[in-house]
Design a protein around this nucleic acid. Structure first.
Length: 673
DNA sequence: GCTGTCAAAGTTTTT
DNA sequence: CTTTGACAGC
């Protein structure tokens, strides 16, 4: 068998070859899970002659999908991979809804509302500017949707006044999206799941397409995603899900580890395969990880082991403040790189929340250490990008009121709050979108000349663009350039911002055009067809051709899942940050609070576990005694997880470590101290 | 009525 | 540093 990697261990091999029914692969950190999935896909296609179009692999992040495709392309040739779907739940959902739009009550060119957009919708419905309130309501609605609850069902779960408020606008939120001919991120999974559940013909059509399904990071699925998976694999029940309950870190967005148990109930013949050999980390690191995770309740017992040397001591640095911490990281990086003759890319600095990256960046720049920031704010969240995209969204779907408003007001055209308000009232009286209502609004309403002309001009401009927008391929770029120059966007940017920021923003717009153009040529799509994808992707992740620069990786713990690095810094290991314990729900009944707190801590502990297990050879932790929070310095304590790491159990003695190169290096290093 | 200026605030994690 | 909201000037 040419295809099968001889390096697979027995368990991995079993996971790859098992095709007699559904399989759950419990893959501990670093146990070669990605290899198993890619090998299995290769095996299905090459040896079992599955039609590539009938094999689907689902991931949670674009990054994971990309990585899997890359790994696959080293085993399979282009032809073999043709038609194979490797992508996120959301991108499959988009594909599904495109095809079934009609059945979902959507036109083919429906819009996708990202978090920003739906925030604005909620803000509108709440008649509030209190960001906290809006955020809470939006999040709550999202949780309900992910749990497959409609407003009626959700009502039974309401406990706090915040939830009451969310429920109040839940109906109208849904109605508003439908009126815009738009779906939000949650709908991309929820609507397919519901359509398949409720419509036999649709279900049959898709089930026919799925002869084998693989799901990565299964522990992070939510109720919707599970329901959809369950529908997709009927009636064959030919699938493999891979996951690790100790790495479930997305409960806050509706993921439930219970999906692991449900799987066993729904598919009693489920084959359980545990991968327990870790190929990533030295024993000392693995041991620390195990010590920490031991404090969580066990679902499936796993005991990870590795036969890679014992490793060097895990260092804990306590720093006076976050600037000192960042500086310490820089010193260590410079020193270690020289000592070990390592590359920058062998190092990662991991942290709990994005804002921690700020100080780090500042110091890394100061010391001229190259770095790359993974995750963080999406390229597509930038104001200038959203402005340009608003035009494209409006051209794709003229019912998209948020896009209409944004396009009309960025850049400003002399139409402001009041006129917009009047148009809005007029449109809702007619039960139509702003665009649709515009002509009769202009006919029937008294307006100052400036506003009237501005609206007419805008309408004519959009009409003209609608005539040209169908261009595809090569023409895309010239169309886009015409668009941005017609709205004088460059001028607008340089008017609004200082020279340098304006230049940067304009460059972003040019990058966007180039990106759209490339997409248009590669996939032979019209610009409008690409617009839907845009909110699901981030530009950074699409530089597939670019080779990674040699740079230190900065990443949140969440974004680091699935990655590994020879040397890891885990910074900000403090109470309040890791574990992060946001505000308490003041309103929750007294008796429910402690249980919730425990759950939260457990998830934070898994996050710590994920962080520790990213490290292959060395791990360094740091924490700050004081940290600037907002405008005040606050005193911090070392994280409880640090204590958990080093607790020695009664009677357990330090294992006799075999010396590794790292140990020798450490000794050598101590001579210099 | 619209728009630009100024001050204040700041989402834990992501599709 | 960036984005948002309030306010004053055109």
């Amino acid at each position: 068998m040419a295809v099968l990697d001889p390096k697979l261990n027995d368990k991995q091999r079993e996971a790859v070859l098992y095709l007699d029914g559904p399989a759950l692969v419990l893959a501990g950190a670093g146990s070669g899970k990605t290899r198993v999935i890619t090998q299995k896909i290769a095996y299905l296609l090459q040896e079992c002659h599955y039609d590539a179009q009938r094999v689907l692999a689902l991931t949670f992040t674009n990054k994971a999908a990309r990585e899997m495709r890359e790994r696959l392309s080293s085993v399979l040739n282009r032809g073999q991979m043709k038609g194979l779907f490797v992508g996120t739940f959301h991108s499959l959902g988009l594909r599904f809804l495109r095809q079934e739009a009609e059945h979902a009550g959507l036109k083919p060119r429906f819009s996708i509302m990202d978090a920003h957009d739906s925030f604005a919708v909620v803000q509108d419905l709440l008649h509030s500017t209190d960001r906290g309130r809006i955020f809470t309501a939006q999040q709550q609605i999202s949780l309900w949707k992910n749990a497959l609850l409609d407003p009626d069902r959700a009502a039974a779960h309401v406990k706090t006044t915040a939830q009451e408020e969310a429920l109040r606008i839940f109906y109208s939120y849904e109605a508003t999206l439908r009126a815009y001919q738009a779906v939000d991120f949650d709908d991309l999974v929820r609507l397919p799941a519901m359509l398949m559940r409720d419509d036999e013909a649709i279900a049959a059509r898709w089930q026919q397409q799925v002869h084998y399904l693989l799901v990565d990071e299964y522990q992070d699925t939510n109720v919707c995603q599970y329901e959809w998976v369950r529908q997709l694999v009927q009636p064959r029940a030919q699938f493999t899900v891979v996951g690790d309950d100790d790495q479930a870190i997305y409960a806050w967005r509706g993921a439930t580890v219970e999906n692991l148990q449900r799987l066993k109930e729904d598919f009693p013949e489920l084959r359980l395969i545990k991968l327990e050999q870790n190929y990533r980390s030295v024993q000392r690191i693995l041991q620390a990880a195990n010590q920490v995770i031991k404090n969580n309740p066990v679902i499936f017992g796993k005991s990870l082991w590795s036969d890679l040397g014992y490793g060097q001591e895990i260092h804990i640095e306590d720093c006076p403040n976050e600037r000192a911490e960042a500086e310490w990281v820089c010193f260590e990086l410079m020193q270690e790189r020289t000592m070990r003759q390592a590359r920058w890319r062998d190092f990662a600095v991991l942290y709990r929340s994005n804002h921690q990256a700020r100080v780090l960046e500042q110091f890394l720049r100061q010391y001229r250490i190259p770095y790359v920031l993974t995750g963080g704010q999406s390229f597509f969240a930038k104001a200038e990008i959203r402005d340009v995209l608003a035009y494209l969204r409006l051209l794709a779907n003229t019912d998209d009121d948020p896009a209409f408003i944004r396009a009309l007001t960025h850049p400003r055209k002399g139409v402001g709050e009041v006129t917009l308000q009047r148009l809005g009232v007029f449109a809702s009286g007619q039960d139509s979108s702003l665009w649709e209502a515009l002509p009769s609004f202009l006919l029937s309403t008294e307006l100052p000349t400036v506003q009237r002309e501005a609206l007419e001009g805008f309408r004519n401009f959009i009409l003209r663009m609608l005539g040209e927008v169908e261009c595809r391929g090569e023409q895309a770029a010239s169309f886009l350039h015409r668009l941005v120059s017609a709205i004088e966007y460059e001028h607008y940017l340089f008017d609004r911002y200082d020279e340098r920021p304006a230049q940067a923003r304009w460059q972003n717009v040019l990058d966007l055009i180039e990106w759209l153009q490339r997409k248009a040529v590669e996939d032979d799509l019209s610009v409008l067809e690409i617009v839907q994808h845009v909110s699901l992707v981030s530009l950074l992740e699409n530089n597939e051709g670019d080779e990674e620069p040699d740079a230190v990786q900065l990443s949140t713990l969440h974004a680091a899942k699935g990655l590994e690095f020879p040397h890891v810094f885990l910074v900000g290991v403090e109470e309040g940050l890791l574990p992060h314990l946001g505000r308490e729900d003041e309103e929750l009944p007294e008796d429910e609070r402690p249980a919730l707190l425990v759950k939260r801590i457990e998830e934070e502990r898994r996050l710590m576990y994920v962080g520790i297990t990213r490290a292959q050879r060395t791990l360094r932790l740091s924490w700050c005694q004081r940290r600037r929070q907002g405008r005040e310095d606050v005193v911090r304590e070392r994280s409880r997880f640090v204590d958990e790491m080093f607790v020695q159990e009664e009677g357990q003695k330090e294992p006799e470590p075999a010396k590794t190169p790292d140990d020798y290096l450490a000794e050598l290093k101590s001579l210099f101290d």
